[in-house]
Design a protein around this nucleic acid. Structure first.
Lengths: 135, 135
DNA sequence: TTATAAGTCTACTTATTTGGTATGGTAAAT
DNA sequence: ATTTACCATACCAAATAAGTAGACTTATAA
C-alpha cells in the first residue's frame, strides 16, 4: 500500500504538473487546495527537490515548480523515493535489494513469483509519468 | 512489501505442501525446521485453518495439513488473508475497498494507474498456487 | 536598509503497526 | 493419562508513519 505521504506527494505533483511552466507555486497554496498538512508537505516537497524533481525559489514570488516536463517524470521514480521499494520482497528488489535469511534464492519458489510481480508492476510504473496523472 | 508474518505463512505452507497427503505435521516441527517463533506460527496456522486452507487434528499423531491440493490454493488468497490488500490504494482494492477522501475517482489519474498495477499483479497472483512454490 | 515573504533545517512528538513473549487454561484424540 | 491443537489475555519493544515546532536563511520590493 502507498503511504499517506506518497498520496500527498502525488497530489502535490499533480497540482504542479497542471501549472507546469507557469511560475512558482506556494507551498501554502498546495497545502490548502489539496488539504495536506502544511509542515508535512514542506518536507515532502523538499525531498522531491533534493531528488531533482522539483525546483524552488525563495522570497516573495517564490514557491515550488516542476524542474522537468511532467512527461519525463516516471511514476516509478516517485514511488521509490517517497514510498520505498516497489517489489514485495527485499530479495527481489532492484533498488532496495537485501538477501534472504534462511532461504536459498536459487530454489525459492516465492522468489520467482515475486520477480514476476515486480516486473509486471514495473512495466507499468516505469512507463507512466506525471503527465498520465492529469485529466 | 510482504510482512514477515506473510513470509512465515508461505514457508509453513510450502513445508505442508511438500508433505501433502502424508498425514498431520506438528506445529513444533514446522517452527523448528523453518525457524519460525512457535507461538507466532500457532496463530498463523489457526488463521489459515479458519480460512479453510488448512485442516488440523488434535491429540497424539495430530498436527496440521493442507485441506486441498496445493495446486488449488491461489497465492492471491494467502496474500489477502495474511498480508492484506494487494492493491496499492484502498480505492482500487477489490476486497478491501475504501472510498478516497478529497479525490474524485472519476477524474483521478492516480486511480487509473493503480488499477493497471492491481490488474497486472492479480494476473499473476490469481494464477499461481502453492504448487508453484515447490521446486 | 529594512520589512516581509518565502523556502530550509533540525529536532521533536505522537500514533499505529509489526513482531513478538509469557502465561495459562480448554478441548479433543489416542 | 498424555499429547496435541485451540483460545484468551495481557504485555512488550522496535519500527514506521504521520505530524508539529521553532529557529534560520535567502530573496524581493518598498
Amino acid at each position: 500500500m502507498l503511504s499517506k505521504k506518497s498520496q500527498y506527494a502525488f497530489k502535490a505533483l499533480t497540482y504542479l504538473a497542471e501549472r507546469f511552466n507557469q511560475g512558482p507555486v506556494l507551498i501554502s497554496e498546495i497545502a490548502k487546495q489539496k488539504k495536506i498538512p502544511l509542515k508535512f508537505l514542506e518536507n515532502i516537497l523538499l525531498e522531491l527537490k533534493k531528488a531533482d524533481i522539483l525546483e524552488s525559489k525563495k522570497g516573495k514570488g517564490g514557491g515550488y515548480f516542476l524542474k522537468k516536463d511532467p512527461a519525463k517524470v516516471k511514476m516509478a521514480t516517485i514511488v521509490r523515493l517517497i514510498n520505498g521499494p516497489i517489489a514485495m520482497l527485499p530479495c527481489v528488489s532492484l533498488y532496495f535489494y537485501e538477501r534472504c535469511k534462511n532461504c536459498d534464492e536459487k530454489q525459492c519458489g516465492l522468489h520467482d513469483i515475486m520477480i514476476e510481480v515486480r516486473d509486471a508492476t514495473l512495466e507499468i510504473l516505469e512507463n507512466r509519468t506525471l503527465k498520465d496523472l492529469l485529466v
